[in-house]
């Protein structure tokens, strides 16, 4: 009498467990598919935005906007120096030179 009850119980537990597992897997797979769809949509959007960004950053357009709205001029080569050409603090070194005999 005892044995069949245990078996029935086990069958019931296993069946319920399997059902929940399967159900959850289905749910997760549906979510995964949804995420994939969003991902593709986002990639598509990124792609369009990258093209638009490039279009808006055309050098000729930037030059035009610059003429229209700012007084900026291109950097002249003379305004660039190498790091080694940047002067160190002359005032400080002069002071320390005088202090130390």
């Amino acid at each position: 009498m005892r044995r069949p009850v245990i078996w029935l119980l086990l069958v019931f537990i296993a069946g319920t467990g399997l059902y929940y597992l399967k159900y959850r897997v289905q749910m997760m797979e549906a979510r995964l598919a949804a995420i994939h769809r969003t991902l593709l949509a986002e990639q598509e959007a990124l792609h369009v935005l990258a093209a638009e960004w490039t279009y808006l950053n055309r050098p000729e357009r930037l030059a035009k906007l610059n003429r229209q709205y700012t007084k900026l001029q291109p950097i002249r080569a003379r305004q660039m120096v190498g790091f080694e050409d940047i002067p160190t603090r002359p005032a400080l070194s002069a002071v320390s030179d005088e202090d130390t005999p």
Binding site: L62, A63, N66, T70, L72, I75, D85, P87, P90
Partner: peptide
């Protein structure tokens, strides 16, 4: 040019653009 700073930002009323 030892006395004057070498990097003249806004030199002669001309602002700089990074281009």
């Amino acid at each position: 040019e030892t006395e004057r700073p070498i990097i003249k930002v806004n030199a002669g009323g001309i602002a700089l653009a990074a281009r």
